[in-house]
Structure formats: C-alpha cells, structure tokens
C-alpha cells in the first residue's frame, strides 16, 4: 500500500533470537495489522495506545489474525503508562475463543520514546506473550519491535517478526 510522502523502512534482523526463553518463537503478521497498530499509535499520541493481539500458535510460530484496540485505563499517566483492565482481557479472550483464536500478546506505543521495553514493562510482563512496542515520535510512527520475557523474568528478548505479505524478517536490537 502506497503511503504519501513516507518511504517505509522496517528494521533488519540484527541478531538471532536467544535461547533464554523456553518457548521463544517467531511472530508473523500482515502489513495490514502493522499499519492498523501505527494508526492506533498516531491517534492516541501523545498518549499510549494499547490492545490485544489475536491469532493462533502454529508449529512454533505465532500467527496474528487481528488486533483489538482497547482503552488505556491509566488515566493518571497515559503518556508513559498503559493498563488493560482485567474485564477487557476477559472480553477479548471470550471473543478470541469464539473465533477459534487465542490472545497471543499485546501491543502498546511509546510516545517520544524508543521502541524498547522499559523496566516497568518487564516488571509487569508475562512469559510466552508477545509484547509489540511502537515508537511514535512527534505524532509519527517509527520502529515497531516485538519482545518476549525470559523465563527467569530478568530480561526481555527480541522476538523475530515476519511480515507474511512478502516474508520480510526483522528483529529488535536487544541493547540501546
């Protein structure tokens, strides 16, 4: 899809996925969902957007089918925090099951902040789930990266992501 005035460049693979997460796997999404998450990030700016990633695990890959944007419940600090209410999770999970899907993870944006997980992200993360982070700088979408919590909860590991439209692979840098 052509985007007026913006040449899209997706981050390249910079290192192989670590073995520190027992259930590490690749995450596959279509450009359509990527762009929907970008639109959510733009619309929410300068606040953080958040939502649920629905799809299926297939032979060691997580394949995204749809996203469900959710209300950021952190009204006290929406520019650098997000919270998904448990009742929204329950509704999303019910919707997923009705469609034969699972909750694969969550996305959120970092307004004017790199697409890297913070300590706060890590402290509140669950294993197995994919955490997609979109950097939005001055209202424009930048990098999007995917992360998995290590089994010892000590760190976030970059998760390899594939755009299923053309097979482009990319993975976040684990450092700064």
């Amino acid at each position: 899809m052509a985007r007026a005035g913006v040449a899209r460049s997706y981050p390249l693979i910079v290192r192989a996925a670590s073995q520190q997460a027992k259930h590490i796997m690749a995450f596959e999404l279509r450009r359509k969902e990527w762009e929907r998450i970008e639109k959510e990030g733009i619309a929410a700016y300068p606040e953080e957007c958040c939502g649920v990633l629905l799809g299926k695990e297939q032979e060691g890959r997580k394949v995204l089918s749809d996203i469900v944007p959710l209300n950021n419940a952190r009204k006290d600090s929406p520019r650098n925090r997000f919270l998904i209410l448990p009742e929204d999770f329950v509704r999303s999970e019910r919707e997923a099951r009705a469609r034969g899907l699972d909750i694969l993870g969550f996305y959120h944006s970092h307004p004017d902040h790199p697409a890297r997980p913070s300590d706060y992200d890590r402290e509140h993360a669950w294993p197995w789930y994919t955490y997609l982070i979109l950097a939005v700088e001055k209202g424009q979408p930048r990098d999007m990266t995917g992360w998995l919590l290590s089994d010892d909860r000590a760190s976030f590991l970059p998760e390899e992501m594939t755009l299923s439209d053309d097979g482009t692979k990319f993975e976040a840098r684990s450092g700064t």
Binding site: R74, R79, N80, F82, L83, H110, P111, D112, S118, D119
Partner: peptide, 20 residues
C-alpha cells in the same frame, strides 16, 4: 485466570518529549 497487563515507557518519556 486473568493476567494483569500493564507497562509503558519509562518516566523519562515526558522529559524526552520536552527535549525534542
């Protein structure tokens, strides 16, 4: 069984926003 899902950029985010 419902996990609490939360996160977000560091407290530095507001500062970076001002700087940029």
């Amino acid at each position: 069984i419902v996990p609490s899902i939360a996160g977000g950029a560091t407290a530095m985010a507001d500062g970076l926003s001002l700087l940029t």
